[in-house]
Design a protein around this nucleic acid. Structure first.
Lengths: 152, 152
DNA sequence: ATGAGAGTTGAAGTCAACTTGATGTCAAGG
DNA sequence: CCTTGACATCAAGTTGACTTCAACTCTCAT
């Protein structure tokens, strides 16, 4: 078997066919076509999809995945060096997320039993203290944690 | 000033007026009305909104907030004991989220430079190993982390 | 050659949590 | 009284990442 059908790619990658077509529309993967117009994939699409899944798992948006893919030279399969480079930035991102959650947990601890929920004093519920609890670098934590500091 | 207008509540709570009206539609807060039909709030709506913000910050959905509010007896303002009880379950949730992220980070570490992205071997990109990396309890991590174990 | 099942497209739907827009009413200072 | 700004409702829009639907068309084992 030379080329893979979309169903086979779906089976092996764990993605739904609709997701694979969507990624194609979004320019994240591409495909050849059979005589009758059906998609046919080279085997290395699986590696590309694995890359996408890893990136999404770490929390990148598809837009960011697109950018990451663009830093891979010349459309070739990522080498170990490419992967290592990207892994480092992902690791940093995870560290930030973990730090933000730990800070939030500590803030919550300081709330327990404090007679809290005062808009003025509570670090968890006070909109103006959000930045202090979280620091500047946090990404894809719950949307509230990403609200602009000045609130709205 | 006896009762607050929606603008004042918005100002003090940090929520947009549209959000406050939305919460009312969703049954999370309620309001009296002026002679002319405008919303008038008792001051304790601020406490309720602070509660909602804290819950959302910790990652609860509005549906879960609704359920949490329902466990507060008799529509009265939460006491310190109520708050403590809820805080404990939130703390557990944060612990789970942190554990899940740490596990993911460790999985990523084990990927760096491993010539990875093999669908068979990689813990980050292999859809079938997601459960192993995360354990059963993780919530509101990126949606991918919450996919059913069997994939789709 | 044929029928089942896999694949095609484009448009529309989903979900959560709100926001925005259109259109009209209320409240209050001057 | 009158204007201005806040408030009202209801419907529709937003965002991201897909899924679902309707209506056809291909492929391949028999």
């Amino acid at each position: 078997m030379e080329l893979l059908s979309i169903g086979e790619v779906a089976e092996r990658s764990g993605y739904a066919t609709s997701a694979i077509r969507y990624y194609e529309r979004e320019g994240l993967v591409d495909a050849q076509r059979s005589a009758g117009g059906q998609r046919r994939y080279r085997r290395d699409v699986l590696r590309r999809l694995a890359f996408i899944r890893a990136a999404r798992t770490v929390g990148l948006s598809l837009e960011e995945v697109r950018e990451a893919l663009a830093t891979l030279p010349g459309g070739r399969t990522p080498t170990r060096a490419d992967w290592t480079r990207l892994s480092r930035s992902w690791r940093r991102r995870l560290d930030e997320q973990i730090d933000a959650l730990v800070a939030l947990r500590d803030g919550l601890d300081s709330c327990i039993g404090c007679g809290c929920l005062s808009l003025r004093r509570c670090r968890v519920s006070n909109p103006h203290d959000r930045a202090a609890v979280l620091g500047p670098g946090a990404r894809w934590l719950p949307p509230l944690l990403r609200q602009p500091v000045d609130g709205g």
